[in-house]
Each structure stands twice: as structure tokens, then as C-alpha cells.
Nucleic acid binder design. Structure first.
Lengths: 140, 140
DNA sequence: TAGAAAATGATAATCATTATCACCTCTGAC
DNA sequence: GTCAGAGGTGATAATGATTATCATTTTCTA
């Protein structure tokens, strides 16, 4: 589970488990989709008003490094984070009108990405794929 | 050709073809890969020192709207632009060590993207796909 | 329990991009 | 030709997300 993963990561690097990190982790895990640092900060602040915004930024980056969060960018200049389940990778479709987001995954595409990478001499590590379109509600 | 496209776009919107725009267009077209606004500004400034950085930003955005340039983001916080050839769409693989970039295109992936979008009720407009890996030179 | 190492919170600094604004340049009606 | 108005430009200030700094506090280990 993610809490265990964090504790292990921290102790392996001489890093410390603080109340702030615990709280941010808990809030982050209970958050379904993709959260920006600021959104998370608002929620966290409601439960611990003393917490600083910089700490949220720092902690989300830490979660990324620890492998329990993944940074997602949709191109609006804001970084969002979502839970990283290696069993459950997915990509995104975004509606350009209402910004609704849908997650999907397509193993065939993943295979083809792997093949393309190999074909060009790369060892594939990760990828970002975002589709932009118009959703059924906005098509009118 | 792209110059024609720009002239047509401009006149269709009561916008003007200025010497600055001409110069930026020429430099942009002679630029192979993806350029950031700042890189382009440096080149352009060498030929017309009076030109302002804001103009380069504005003009690249204009080219995007006119359909002759496409904005690409690799996730380092900088927007880059490349020539848009609708016949010649491609995606990118980036080496995480040396940042070398390779372009590729895969019609099968494009098909599958289209299918995924439809499956979720979206009309697909565009997509961004970037693969991250380690290139053969950096694998050692 | 002491003390080094790390974390925190407040705040200043960055850095790419955008907005503002005074001035310039073109075009077309008179 | 002159004038008016729309659009463009360049300099600079503003923005907004993120990061660095630093004095203070906390954590963990010996």
C-alpha cells in the first residue's frame, strides 16, 4: 500500500516522516483524479491551517520520486498529480470546451509505443499521451 | 506554401503583413525542428536588432492560429513551435539523459487514438504524445 | 536525551509568458 | 494629399506557477 511505500522510501534515504507528509499523503490518496498542488493545498489547509504551500509542492515532488504519484501536464501550465498504480496505467482525453476528462488505456497502443521506441534505439521509460477533442455533451 | 497561407489568413482577418512578421516567418520556416520563442528571438534579433521579444511571442501564437505552426510541449515549462504539415504529422521520443529528440509517426497508433476517442463519445481534434526513454548513445 | 540531519513556513526570487500603453504605420475615404 | 482609425510594435510592468532561501523547529538514531 502507498503508505508503506512512502515509509520505506523515506527510511531508505534518511528522510523523515512528518505529520505534514502524513496528512498530505492521506488527502492525496483520498483524492480520486488529478490534483494540482494548489487544489491539494486548499484541502490540506482546511485540516491544518498552519501548513505551508511550499511544503505541499515539495511533498508532491517527493511522492513522485518515491513512485507513488505521477505528474501529469495537460498544457495549461499547471502540474497535476495522480496516484501511480503500475498495474493501472492510463492516458487522458480532454474536452476542449468543458475540460471534462476521461481516462482510458489501450494495451495495443502501449505495445506500439514500445516498438517505436525500440525501432529508434531507445529504451522506453514512460510516455505522455493526451487526446484533445469535443465531448458528446458539448457537440450540440 | 506557408507564406501564402499566412497572407491568406491575415487578409481574411484584417490583419497585416508587417516586416517583423515576414522576418519571423522566414526564420521560422528555415528552422528545422522545434524552436522556442526565445531561440527564435535570438536568431531574429541578429538580423533585426530592433525587434521586440513580445513580438516574437505574439507572432508564434499567430502562426499557430493560422495553422502553419504547432505548439509542442515537452514538459520543461517551455513552449516550442514546429512547422505544421498536415500530411506529415509526427510525435516525439526524447532521451532523458541527453535530451536528443527523434520524430516518428505511426498510423496504427493514430487509428487507435481515433477509436478510443469515439468510444468515449469524443470527436478527436488533436493529440500530444511524447515518449521518454534512454537513447542508444546514453545506454553505455 | 543530545545533536546532527532534515523539514517546515514565510517570503523572496525565478522564469516563461502576457498585458499594458504610448507611439508608429498603413490604408482608404474625403 | 490629409486625416482617421485599425492594427502593430517595443519597452516594460505584471502575472502566476514553481523554486530557492533561511531562520527556526522537528525527527530519528546513537
Amino acid at each position: 500500500m502507498a503508505e508503506k511505500a512512502i515509509i520505506k522510501y523515506l527510511s531508505g534515504k534518511n528522510l523523515k516522516l512528518t505529520p505534514q507528509r502524513k496528512l498530505i499523503l492521506e488527502v492525496f490518496l483520498n483524492q480520486g483524479g488529478h490534483v494540482s498542488s494548489e487544489e491539494l493545498y486548499d484541502i490540506v489547509k482546511a485540516r491544518n491551517p498552519g501548513i505551508g504551500q511550499a511544503t505541499v509542492y515539495r511533498t508532491l515532488k517527493l511522492f513522485s520520486e518515491a513512485g507513488i504519484a505521477e505528474e501529469v501536464r495537460f498544457g495549461d501550465g499547471v502540474s497535476r498529480y495522480e496516484r501511480k498504480d503500475s498495474q493501472n496505467h492510463h492516458d487522458h482525453i480532454i474536452c476542449e470546451k468543458c475540460f471534462r476528462q476521461v481516462e482510458f488505456s489501450d494495451p495495443t497502443i502501449e505495445d506500439l509505443q514500445e516498438k517505436q521506441a525500440r525501432k529508434h534505439g531507445f529504451d522506453l521509460i514512460s510516455h505522455r499521451m493526451v487526446l484533445y477533442g469535443v465531448c458528446s455533451d458539448c457537440r450540440e
